[in-house]
Design a protein around this nucleic acid. Structure first.
Lengths: 191, 191
DNA sequence: CCTATTTCTTGATATATATCAAGCAGTTTT
DNA sequence: AAAACTGCTTGATATATATCAAGAAATAGG
């Protein structure tokens, strides 16, 4: 078992990775074991790393009128960035934080751009992954616009029941675009 | 002036396009002059083309409780697809329609995938464009979550004043996530 | 284990925006 | 040019969900 196998298994599901490319990527990677509550990105800074979650769970959030609003949760086998900041390389409005002790593999944006230039075929992976996460984002937008608070709760509970054991209800509430009180009332009705 | 110059000027701002790639792309392209109200995609079908708008304006919308909700407007020098349907190749929930007589250049998804396989460096363009539109989508999400109806109107009016002369107010209203009546009341206050 | 802190629940009230309805103003059709 | 649409405006009312407040339950710290 090699150090970055979890990541390369993930990538090889999208396309074959040549030996030469694999070596070049490996030279750029870093692996970290980090504690719950570690801040991966702080608002006001530029997101300059992509992380792959080998184990654990992360959350992105921003502040609005002093309140934390959760943008997303990501877990094992997910790639994470703060989309706006990473792709535009401008200051982030959101924070990224670990919600569990986690094992992360990461690469800097600079190294990533170097690999994209040096190995044109590496853009295939970047393209497909960006498309994939963009689709997920669209699904959330449409769910948010077409469903009531209660329907959004139902849909999330059905698609990711285990999430409710891993994060606080108030974070799920703001992720679903409702107050913690509203979520509590919905949950009461449902049991 | 060649037939697809508008598109190649657009692409060459992202990276150089080799002669061989340019020829291969050109063989896959189609140019159409289409009338206002032409439906580019109908809900229930799969989006199987990317369009580049050389001239004109398009709008995407879907139905909710019998009402049209506008997802986006795109104009000259924009690439358009129905993100969810095109990238996932599943049935579309949205329609795409021309709001003005337009000139469009397009390529089928099948040809696009062929080019991605045959010219690895072509993925560079797909990646960068996807990142760019994903960032714009994020900006709209955050504007929607952090601003009131009135603030969203102000921001759009400031960033795209000309849009108000090109499309109906009711479409702008649903794009901004408010009723036509609310938009009307906001506009009244502001003049 | 006891105490302190944070999270969750429940009720009362407030509010932004939607919905309904009807008239007016443009635009297109005949 | 009248008739028929369609879009826009304005007022009255409705509603989903937020906010405020305070107690109960759960979790974490010493």
């Amino acid at each position: 078992m090699h150090m970055y196998d979890s990541l390369f298994v993930f990538l090889s599901q999208l396309n074959t990775v040549s030996g030469e490319l694999k070596e070049a990527i490996t030279r750029c990677l870093t692996k970290q074991e980090l504690k719950k509550k570690t801040l991966l990105l702080q608002e006001g800074k530029v997101c300059d790393r992509v992380y792959f979650i080998e184990k654990g769970l992360a959350r992105a959030y921003y502040f609005m009128d002093g309140q934390e609003i959760t943008s997303w949760f990501m877990k094992e086998n997910d790639m994470i960035i703060s989309v706006y900041s990473f792709f535009s390389q401008r200051i982030s409005y959101e924070n990224m934080e670990l919600e569990e002790d986690s094992i992360l593999i990461s690469i800097t944006n600079k190294d990533l751009q170097m690999l994209y230039r040096q190995f044109p075929e590496f853009n295939f992976f970047g393209r497909v992954l960006t498309e994939d996460y963009y689709v997920r984002s669209e699904e959330r937008i449409i769910s948010h616009r077409m469903q009531t608070a209660e329907q959004r709760y139902e849909a999330l509970f059905k698609s990711s029941p285990s999430l409710f054991n891993r994060v606080l209800n108030k974070h799920i509430a703001s992720y679903l675009g409702m107050s913690a009180e509203t979520l509590s009332r919905i949950r009461k009705k449902r049991k």
